[in-house]
Design a protein around this nucleic acid. Sequence first.
DNA 1: AAATGATATTGCAATATTACGATGATATAT
DNA 2: ATATATCATCGTAATATTGCAATATCATTT
Lengths: 107, 107
Amino acid sequence: MGATKTHIFSIRHNELAQAAKVMAHPARIAILEFISKQDSCICTDLVDEIGLAQPTISQHLNEIKKIGLLKGTFEGKNLCYCIDQEKWLELQQFFNSFFSSINQNCC
Amino acid sequence: MGATKTHIFSIRHNELAQAAKVMAHPARIAILEFISKQDSCICTDLVDEIGLAQPTISQHLNEIKKIGLLKGTFEGKNLCYCIDQEKWLELQQFFNSFFSSINQNCC
DNA sequence: AAATGATATTGCAATATTACGATGATATAT
DNA sequence: ATATATCATCGTAATATTGCAATATCATTT
């Protein structure tokens, strides 16, 4: 017990949930917003900006990276993380079509 | 350790994250979708439809209720849960404006 | 080549989430 | 009134998430 029973749900439902999960933490919301405001983006800036320890920021970045929302250079010094525009728009549409599909009223 | 440091984030970031959290589980996505398709909605239908135990469905419904997404009759037999249209649209706009604000490209 | 600076990884503790059996509450039917 | 049906709550086990110190990695300086 305790683990989400992903196998009983559709792929679409699982994917939506997984995408939502990435945004289900204020740090990741703040990170996405901060990165979008910068010309180039380095993890240290984020550590200063957000106020969490560097490993924690790194972990959050990884969660965002996992679903393909970040692109850029990922190795070495002075990394440049950027939001993948294409993926971001795809996600926006994904959410929007879900929101739009829930529109009937019954009460 | 272990708990989200909500106090270091803005109210807006916390609210967005909290709303995302509600959708960050496939059962809750499925529940929202199922309810929107029904004329009236009873928890037992959901138990049959989703395939989780009744207390688990009840818990998930509660998470959705907490952010005000459900309205209807909540006591007695044959409950009628419905999605609050106003709140749902509000949430859709909230997400949409967040998605739209992340649109600059740096790489 | 050693030092430095920036990010990643590991390991672990604290807390949150998920799930369900048992039980409780409440409304309707018999 | 008793039985039944439906949903809520409690208690608890299993698992996931969050956060950080310590450490590792890796590119750039010196």
